[in-house]
Design a protein around this nucleic acid. Structure first.
Length: 269
DNA sequence: ATGGTTGAGCGTCAA
């Protein structure tokens, strides 16, 4: 009887503001591990007692003032896995990795928050777009150098919707940051360094699938101009262990909702 | 082409 493991990922867009929403996520998804992005809280101001109070006694965080920030909350013990570089040398708190201490052996977990990239999809005139492409290229190279990836799960807000049906209108978004060919090709190249797209494992590529809806729509559900920016990837050896997925679309209607909704994948671990 | 909204934290900047 294999033990199942549920890993959730959510761009919480301010941990302190949306801490009251975490019990709803937990009730709905019952995750063993929660990976958060855009915590927007410096490490010294992180509510250190909150994870244990929520039933997640093992926690790690990497944050800064105002922007970015990632955190991992876990029911399962883990050890820090500080093996990655300081991406693009910026110290900007976009990645955290741990080794989950499972009965079947350690499982390597990566929580990423990829730069959004600004508004103009041009690396020459827009330094934020250059940073995004450089970040993805550096991450791709780093995983490429670790050939033979196994027992590894990568989650997070990757800020790129790679497939045609990961956006509401492929044609209208080809020039919009998050869905430009240079980004979607770069993300696919990163994925191909030993990973399998766990959400598209369950949902055929010709079906629309979103995890984010802009705040800038009066009725997000009616207009449904979504994008799939949040991802769960597993190393190829874990493909056969995938059991189910949930995109918690209802969370987009929670009070003071994040513009991203939680995503959860269950696998035999 | 533009604007639309939210968060951090008090200027605008980032998304």
């Amino acid at each position: 009887m294999p033990q199942t493991l549920r890993i959730a990922t959510w761009n919480i867009n301010s941990l302190r503001l949306r801490l009251p929403a975490l019990p709803r996520l937990i009730e709905a998804l019952r995750p063993d591990v929660i990976c958060l992005q855009e915590t927007k809280v410096p490490d010294l101001l992180f509510p250190a007692q909150a994870p244990a109070e929520l039933g997640y006694p093992h926690a790690a965080w990497r944050g800064m003032k105002g922007y970015n920030g990632v955190a991992i909350l876990s029911k399962i013990p883990f050890t820090a896995n500080d093996i990655a570089p300081d991406w693009c040398g910026r110290g900007d708190c976009r990645h955290l990795s741990v080794l989950l201490d499972l009965p079947s052996g350690p499982l390597e977990l990566h929580d990423f928050y990829v730069p959004a990239g600004g508004d103009v999809p041009d690396r020459v005139t827009n330094p934020k777009f250059a940073h995004k492409l450089d970040f993805v290229a550096e991450a791709t190279g780093w995983f490429a150098a670790r050939a033979g990836l196994r027992r590894t799960v990568l989650v997070g807000d990757l800020n790129i919707a790679p497939l045609e049906h990961d956006v509401w209108s492929h044609r209208q978004l080809l020039d919009v940051v998050s869905h430009t060919p240079v980004e979607t090709e770069a993300l696919t190249h990163w994925l191909n360094q030993g990973f399998h797209d766990a959400l598209r494992h369950f949902v055929p590529e010709d079906r629309k699938l979103y995890t984010w809806w802009s705040y800038r729509n009066r009725d997000w559900r009616a207009s449904d101009r979504g994008r799939r920016l949040d991802h769960v990837w597993v190393s190829r050896d874990l493909t056969k262990a995938l059991r189910s997925y949930t995109i918690l679309k209802d969370a987009r209607d929670w009070p003071q909702a994040s513009d991203h909704v939680p995503v959860c994948v269950e696998l035999d671990a």
